[in-house]
Each structure stands twice: as structure tokens, then as C-alpha cells.
């Protein structure tokens, strides 16, 4: 089994792959369930076209439960009962409740085999001027590559996917409650359906993992706590108490995580990469045909108002991203309402592009 690494959505795919979750149907069920929940909640708001960007709505809360369920089941464990899960005080860190064979867990997640990328919020925000999103591997990049139990894996994936105000709460429940009220979603309804506590739970877990040296500096590979001490960064106990969200989405610091030049990058955005890459081809054969059917889409607007968009722009030394209609449509589908058919279409594209990648290299 190759070494796996991932950030954001990619971290969940990498972790699920390591755990042995079958992509179809179990992996897709996680995605489809999260998408259905966002659509249901979105119908109750005044912004019916937005899913992922509905203010105050937390995608990581929508996906955490089904993601944990898929991982635990694939490891032969048992899940907490419905009543336990509905109890807000239920302690998910009670690993013994999952009844997972520790040796099996260690075989699926051996030390160093799965690297989940994170962004250190303090390092990111303390830099002035802020690091350009075009730079790669800025000093804020952190990663985890050893895990004690399923909750370590789930927590790392949740924070690796956490962008404040986009995929998770903005500044805590108070702000998001106000936003939800402003957009006609009752606070109590939000509490019942989403809970909005995945970020806090993951934050507590990562704080403990950091203390144990499981979170490492992206550049040095040293435990991040030790690295901070050596670089003179002081953390007060008050900081640690208040700072439940020290880590944000790993893609902020490093969109395309790599171990080395031989790492195959998987990206749903087409472009040119220095590493071998599985990604959509630069021009989809049916692109022109689809554009005429897609008059209200972002891609149509882009084509209408900026006809001279360059094909690519330099993202970082290891990649140039494609500014084409296919990518515009992909981004639109990811942040706006996506029905099951669209999501399965994305699944099929990933499968087909991988088949093409393997065929071109004689690897099938």
C-alpha cells in the first residue's frame, strides 16, 4: 500500500482509503448524505441556491457522523447507539466503545503511512504581510502522520477540512446563531440538526495530539510544539484554553500536498503539475456543447465577460492551474447546489481520468 497524504476533502478520502472503506457505495454515501443535509437546510433559508456557503452552516458537522461511521465499520467496530449519538454530552473519545482491534488499527494506520495536512492559524495570521496563496508550503503547514485511535483520524480530517465561515462555524456559536437568524434559520433548529460542535471536539483532540507531539512542522518534521519552542514562539496556558481552533484547512497552507517528486497528485482541478497527476483533461470533449445549455452558470458568465481568460496561471513552482470552463463548472458544482446526479458525474470523471492515467503509463 503506498503512502497516502491529503488535505481538506482529500484528507477524508486518504483516511477512508487507509481504513479500507469501499469507495462505492460507502465512500459515496458519506458525500451524498452530507450533500442531502446541506440541501435540506438550504431549502429553509433565504439563500436557496447556496449549500456550502450558507452563512453559519457547518459542512464538517454534516459529514462528521457519517464519516466516523464509515471508518468504524470498515475496522469491524461497533458504533454508539442512536440515543448515545443524540446526547450532546456523549464522549466520542471513549475508544473502547467502538470495540476495534488495536492491532488491526495499527496495521491500517501504521506510523508514517497517512499524512493529513493542516494549517496553523496562528502561524498563518502572525505573518505580515500574509503569505501569498500562490506560495507553496508556507511556514504554517503542519501535518499528522501517526494516530492513536479512530478519533485522532476523524479529528485531523475535520480540521483539515475546516475553513471558518465556509465549511464550519465562523467565530463560534454566537455569531453563527445570529447569522442563521438573519437568514431565517432558527437557532434551535440548527442545534437539533447540525449541533455545530465538530470543530470544538476536533480542536480538543488536536490540542491533546499536539501536546503528545503527534502534530508536526511541515518543513522540519519535528513535533510542532517542540518546533515552536525552538523558534521562540511562546504559548500561554490561556492561549491553549481559548484556542480550540488552532488548526484550519490544510489546503490553505498547501493545496497540493506531496511527500516527494514521485507523489501522484490527485486534483479535481485541471492544470499542469510538476508531479505525475490524476486530474481532468484541460478540455472536456463535450464542453462547448454543454455551455449552451448552461446559461445561468458561472462558466457562462466567465465566458461572456472575460473571453480572453488565459488557459493557465502559475499557482506555485509545482503547478499551473487551468482557468477554463471545466474548472469553473467544477468549482460551481462544489459550492452551489449539487444534486446526486452531478455528484455521481464527478465520481465517474475521477474514475475515468484515473483509468486514462493508468492506461497511458501501461499500469493497468
Amino acid at each position: 500500500v503506498p503512502l497516502l497524504t491529503g488535505v481538506s476533502a482529500g484528507s477524508m478520502i486518504a483516511a477512508a482509503t487507509a481504513a479500507g472503506v469501499a469507495p462505492e457505495p460507502d465512500g459515496m454515501d458519506v458525500v451524498l448524505t452530507a450533500a442531502r443535509r446541506t440541501r435540506e437546510l438550504s431549502k429553509k433559508s433565504l439563500l436557496p441556491t447556496f449549500d456550502a456557503l450558507t452563512p453559519g452552516y457547518s459542512l464538517i458537522d454534516a459529514v462528521e457522523g457519517t464519516f466516523r461511521e464509515a471508518i468504524v465499520k470498515s475496522l469491524g467496530g461497533t458504533l454508539p447507539s442512536q440515543s448515545q449519538q443524540q446526547n450532546r454530552d456523549y464522549d466520542y473519545t471513549l475508544e473502547s466503545l467502538y470495540d476495534i482491534d488495536p492491532q488491526l488499527f495499527q496495521r491500517r494506520f501504521p506510523m508514517g503511512s497517512l499524512r493529513i495536512g493542516l494549517t496553523d492559524k496562528r502561524a498563518l495570521l502572525s505573518t505580515f504581510p500574509p503569505p501569498s496563496p500562490l506560495s507553496s508550503l508556507p511556514t504554517a503547514y503542519r501535518y499528522v502522520d501517526s494516530y492513536r485511535n479512530v478519533e485522532d483520524v476523524v479529528a485531523a480530517c475535520m480540521l483539515s477540512s475546516y475553513i471558518p465561515g465556509v465549511t464550519g462555524p465562523l467565530l463560534g456559536d454566537n455569531i453563527s446563531d445570529k447569522l442563521l437568524e438573519a437568514f431565517n434559520i432558527g437557532g434551535s433548529e440548527k442545534d437539533e440538526e447540525a449541533g455545530n460542535d465538530a470543530m470544538k471536539r476536533a480542536g480538543r483532540q488536536l490540542r491533546e495530539m499536539t501536546r503528545l507531539g503527534l502534530v508536526k512542522d511541515g518543513k522540519t518534521g519535528l513535533p510542532s510544539a517542540q518546533s515552536e519552542t525552538e523558534t521562540g514562539i511562546e504559548r500561554s496556558s490561556q492561549d491553549e484554553e481559548d484556542d480550540s481552533t488552532q488548526y484550519w484547512d490544510g489546503g490553505i497552507a498547501d493545496v497540493f500536498p506531496t511527500f516527494d517528486d514521485n507523489t501522484i497528485i490527485v486534483s479535481p482541478i485541471s492544470g499542469m503539475y510538476s508531479n505525475p497527476t490524476i486530474c481532468p483533461s484541460m478540455q472536456q470533449p463535450n464542453e462547448v456543447e454543454n455551455q449552451s445549455l448552461d446559461n445561468s452558470s458561472v462558466s457562462y458568465l466567465l465566458r461572456s465577460y472575460v473571453p480572453s481568460l488565459p488557459a493557465t496561471f502559475r499557482h506555485c513552482p509545482k503547478s499551473s492551474l487551468g482557468l477554463n470552463m471545466g474548472n469553473a463548472r467544477a468549482v460551481k458544482d462544489m459550492i452551489l447546489s449539487s444534486d446526486d446526479e452531478q455528484l455521481y458525474q464527478r465520481f465517474k470523471e475521477g474514475y475515468d481520468d484515473t483509468t486514462r492515467f493508468l492506461n497511458e503509463r501501461g499500469l493497468t
Binding site: 491529503g6 481538506s8 486534483s267
Partner: peptide, 30 residues
């Protein structure tokens, strides 16, 4: 086998799931 890095670029990572499915089918992933 080379290492494999799944990028961010979107929370609804169905594309990644499709890639994972194909690699699994061809024995690249366990």
C-alpha cells in the same frame, strides 16, 4: 509504489472518491 496525495479543492470530493475506486480496482490501493 509511489505515494498518492489527495488535494483539497472542494469539500464535496466525489472526484477523489472516483479516483480512489479506480486505483483500488487496479490493486494500487488496499
Amino acid at each position: 509504489l509511489p505515494s498518492i496525495g489527495f488535494s483539497g479543492a472542494g469539500f464535496l470530493g466525489c472526484y477523489h472518491v472516483g479516483v480512489s475506486a479506480c486505483l483500488q480496482r487496479h490493486g494500487w490501493l488496499g
